[in-house]
Amino acid sequence: MKRLMMIAIMLSTTFLNYANATNYTETKYPIVLVHGFLGFDDIQGYDYFYKIAQKLRQDGATVFTAQISSTNTTEIRGEQLLQQVKQFLALSGASKVNLIGHSHGGPTSRYVASVAPELVASVTSIGGVNKGSKVADLFYSVAPDGTLINTAGATIIGYISKIAQFLSGGSSLPVDPVGALKALTTYKSLAFNKKYPEGVPTTACGEGDPVVISTVNNVQHKVYYYSWTGNRLVTSPKDALIDVPLKAVSLLAFGSSWLGGEDNDGMVGVCSTHLGKVIGTYRMNHVDEINQVLGHTALFLSVPSLYRQHANRLKLQGL
C-alpha cells in the first residue's frame, strides 16, 4: 500500500510539475481576451476575465485584453477589435493572434477572423452567442420596439454601459444598447452568420469546421476554431446573488430541464455556443465562464485551469 501511495504521489508531482512548467502556456502567437455584453477590460485593476490573464502569463503566454464598446453591434465591436489587434501585433512583433472571446466576444472575434484571417491564428468562443440568445429573444418578445419598457430597458443598459466604460477608461467608445441587444437575438445572429459563416455548425447542435483556410493576396491562411461553455446554473453559495437571478432568467427563456427545456448557461443555449471544435460543457454558468464573481465557482472546478489547458492546446497545435 505504501508503495502504491508513493507511486501515486510521484505521478501527481510529475503531472503538477509539467502543468506548471514555465512554458506550459507559451503559445506561438499572443492571446487576446475579448469581453462580452456590458463587459470591460479592467476596472481599477479588477479584471473582467478574473485572474485569467495573470495565470496564463505565469507560464509563458503573452496576453492582451481588448477594450471595446461594452454595448454595440457585432460589426462595430469587431472593427474596434481589429484595430486593437493591429496595435497588439505592433507591440509584440507577432504576425497573428489567438482570440478568446466570451459571450458577445465570440462573434466579435469571429468577425475579425473573417475579414482579416491573415491576422488571426485561432478563435475560441466561450459561452459565445453564435446562434443567438433566447434571453435577448425574450426581451424583444416582452418589450418590442417602440414600447415604454423597451425604451426604459435600453436606457438603463446604456447608462450601465457608459458607467462601466468610464470606470475602465473607455469613455470615448460609442455605446449602442439597442444595437447590442438586437445583435444577440436569434434572428440577427443567423443573419450575421450568413455573412461570416466560418466555424459555425451547419447542424442544430453539432460542430463546425475546426480549421478554415482563406486566401489573402494569394497566400493561404488557416484559422482554427474552438468553443466551450457551461450548463450548470447554481454553482456556488457565495455567488447566490448572481446564480439565483441567472436561474430565474434561464427558466423564463429556456424552460425547465425537467420538462425538456434547453440546456444552457443562464444566458445562452449550449447548442448556440458551439463553434468549430467543441471542447466540452462544464459545471459552470455564464458568469463562471470568466471566473466571476471573485473566482467563486463550482466545487473542484478551476476556471483558470481551463484557460491554461487551452493555451497549452494552442501551443501544441503550433499556434
Score class of each variant (00 low, 15 high):
P107K: 00
P117D: 01
I290T: 05
N72L: 01
Y29V: 14
V211M: 10
H296Y: 15
Y29N: 12
T25A: 04
D41F: 00
A180L: 05
N264I: 00
K277P: 15
S214M: 04
Y24F: 14
F254L: 06
V212W: 01
V216M: 09
G128D: 13
A154T: 15
L319A: 08
S302C: 14
D59E: 09
G318P: 00
R313Q: 12
E118Q: 15
L148W: 08
G93W: 09
Q309I: 01
F37L: 05
Y18F: 11
H35M: 09
V85W: 02
R313E: 14
R3A: 13
G261C: 02
F139Q: 11
S95I: 01
G266Y: 09
T155E: 07
L173M: 14
A94L: 08
V112F: 04
Y196Q: 01
I126E: 02
L184Q: 05
Q83S: 12
K188M: 02
L173R: 15
Y226D: 02
A121S: 15
Y225T: 13
N98Q: 10
L241Y: 08
L259E: 08
Y307F: 11
P210L: 06
G266L: 05
L233E: 09
G276H: 08
C271F: 10
K195H: 04
I9E: 10
S305R: 11
L246N: 11
L316F: 07
R110Q: 02
I76L: 10
A21G: 12
S141M: 05
T186P: 07
